[in-house]
Design a protein around this nucleic acid. Structure first.
Lengths: 413, 413
DNA sequence: GCTCTTTTTTTCGAGCCTCGAAAAAATACT
DNA sequence: AGTATTTTTTCGAGGCTCGAAAAAAAGAGC
């Protein structure tokens, strides 16, 4: 049962409100913050002067060219870039990248390298991550603030505590304890996040008007992933990162999926499935390990150009996605959708089939109103979401509690 | 964006904590409440003496026969039955029942009558409800406290604001504004709730150890309904009461469902579907409007007794439920399940097929660990959930804000 | 250049709320 | 009857937010 509210929680929460208002709005004045938070001017004044004194916020002078308004000009408050630093690591099939990012969200240094992830030992993967983070942090040296958080985004299923990679298509190994290993190495809290969840996180910062309280991000790539925001919160499982849309069942005992089971949506709509249907015409053929973007683009072009096995393959893919969405929409009502990844470039080919399938389901009552959005490149979204994840942690768990907590921690240490 | 916390919200929340602790524990002492809420003894003391002065709580004397412990004996706090009264109305196929219930959850008066709901006008349905509530409240007269809330549980889909019945199998009419009509009549806040959601609400009070933060209630009846609790909260849609498990798609373009679409889980696992498969062997036959409990029990007996069309019908039903659950478990991890309703008496026949199907899905990784529970009679659960719904509203929205809010409301009125 | 107006920000005292410590209350043990 | 033990209340201290008033900072008007 949820616990009572103490007196000091009050200040903590209101500090969090102020920080979050600044992160969202960019350079709001104290008056604006008072308006958005509903707190009084005096409270905002006290809290923000505390935050400035602690080096978390800073008054942003001179940037605004004076709005030509009468009266005392507003002073914008901004996040102090030097307040902290975080590291965002993105690990995907055959590629590792990382960036050191300041508290205001500016990238200080970044690096990307290719790896043959599927042939590496679990420990080697972890060590590559550690190595890259170490190189980058040493490269910025003392110039940057202290690193307060490391977030790792990985393609695959993570546990609900964001500590381990439970399963991933990028490696044959299971249960890789990224968080523990990196924490031991750097002495900083670390989380491992699912890539699609990070895409969802990024979308709400990219376009908060469209992606606010309820929306769905679907990654159309070699596999099918999903990031789901329900009632303003990222929807994760109780034990895993959750929302494995690609492994909902489209046809019981149907096509062979990469996961070894049959009839999953992915077994019809994943890149390998589309290729398999178009080229081999055998939905039970062993899934390919990888497929280039060009291959999928070529298939889509062929499907656009003429009727044939390619179009049929995309029809099956669209149908699988549509019926899957329809089933989802039976559980929670339709929401705006973003299709992300290479597959999104071919979404125009699938869309009619997706809509037709949704219309055959209970969720399809308002299928006309369901709006799709496509964004071909998932990489910057994953990076951005990963960064926001880490920054929000610093906001809420380190800076909002403020000195009270830091004193308590010091007492323990 | 969520709003900052004012100073008075604090007291409001802590009052809510105390009330909720008492409702949960029955007769906790102040010391126990302090322990469960994490608030200090002095705070609990002040709040509870306020609540007693307001007539919300009462010290329960003499009930406990003195625990033979040394020291000042604990004084149990209990909800004052006379603090308020609520009305719980349950409307289902051909039956309407209602009860006036005191603040401690004791039924004061109750009534049930049969109606031919499918042949009634929408307005007649509403008027039957109004009539019954009026009769009952007049019957208790001034003996009982003021009615502060009316909750109506209906089989069917309601809107997310719990104001209207959007669709229901018990009537051909749509969009029936129960809440507005009853509010106008009685001048008391009213909600219309989905029956399966009420079953879920009831389960968490019946057995909080098993049904706490994540669980699923499935109503196996003429149709298939679901009540879902995720992370401690009833999961509802953004626009509707949500969780229409019965209308997830089991087989695209498959059997004819009562809803007019094809391949829904209900079209295989609803009573009418099982009967249709067993007796007609035609999954596209027009669904029956109703079916007696005895018919289903007879089918189950036949299925237990010998192989044949009955067993095959239950196999198909179990498979549909299993694959459906597997798909759900792809989205959020497995949780304890309760099967409620007549269909639950036949669940032993379906269980092996349910488990076999789940095992073929991604959610089935731990299918062994998934535990099923069956409760044949849904009626008392719906009643109980409906009651709790109304009482919790009084707790949280009326008594927790206390005089502060009541004064503000008086100012407006 | 000086004063007036307008808007933002800070200051200050009042009013709540929670907490810890100490006191009071109520009972069993000896 | 006195002592030990446990629960509950009381009381002062410390925090927090709020509203009102004051201070600050600029444009507008003359």
């Amino acid at each position: 049962m949820s616990v009572g509210i103490r007196h000091d929680d009050l200040r903590k929460r209101n500090r969090a409100m102020v920080i979050s208002a600044v992160r969202r709005a960019g350079q709001p004045s104290r008056t604006e913050i008072a308006a958005t938070t509903g707190l009084s001017h005096s409270t905002i004044s006290t809290i923000s002067s505390d935050l400035i004194a602690e080096g978390i916020l800073a008054e942003s002078k001179g940037s605004e060219p004076a709005l030509l308004k009468r009266g005392r000009p507003q002073v914008g408050l901004a996040l102090d870039p030097g307040a902290a630093t975080i590291v965002a690591v993105v690990l995907s099939l055959n590629s590792l990248s990382a960036a050191v990012i300041d508290y205001a969200g500016n990238t200080i240094v970044a690096e990307t390298r290719r790896l043959v992830t599927q042939r590496m030992q679990a420990e080697a993967l972890v060590e590559e991550c550690i190595g890259m983070v170490r190189r980058l942090t040493e490269r910025c040296g003392e110039a940057a603030g202290t690193v307060l958080r490391i977030a790792v985004a990985v393609q695959g299923v993570t546990d609900s505590g964001s500590r381990k990679l439970l399963w991933s298509p990028i490696t044959p190994h299971d249960d890789i304890p990224f968080a523990d290993r990196l924490e031991r190495e750097f002495g900083v809290p670390v989380t491992v996040e699912n890539d699609c969840n990070m895409i969802a996180e990024a979308l709400r910062w990219r376009d908060p008007s469209r992606y606010r309280d309820d929306f769905i991000a679907i990654l159309l790539s070699h596999g099918i992933g999903m990031g789901l925001v329900v009632k303003g919160e990222l929807f994760t499982g109780t034990q895993s990162s959750g929302a494995e849309f690609g492994h909902m069942i489209h046809r019981p005992d149907g096509a062979l999926c990469r996961c070894g089971r049959r009839g999953c949506i992915e077994a019809y709509a994943g890149n390998y499935a589309i290729w398999r249907n178009a080229r081999l015409g055998d939905e039970n053929a062993e899934p390919l390990a990888d497929l280039s973007d060009e291959d999928i683009i070529a298939l889509a072009d062929a499907a656009r150009d003429h009727d044939g096995p390619e179009r049929e393959a995309f029809r099956k893919a669209g149908e699988a996605i549509g019926f899957g969405l329809g089933s989802m929409f039976a559980l929670f009502d339709p929401a705006p959708l973003a299709f992300v990844g290479v597959g999104a470039t071919a979404f125009d080919v699938m869309e009619p089939y997706v809509r037709a399938a949704i219309a055959k389901t209970a969720g399809g009552t308002h299928s006309r109103a369901i709006s799709f959005d496509t964004m071909p490149n998932e990489v910057p979204l994953i990076r951005e979401g990963c960064m926001m994840r880490a920054l929000l942690y610093v906001d809420d768990e380190i800076f909002a509690p403020g000195t009270a907590l830091r004193r308590a921690q010091a007492g323990v240490a």
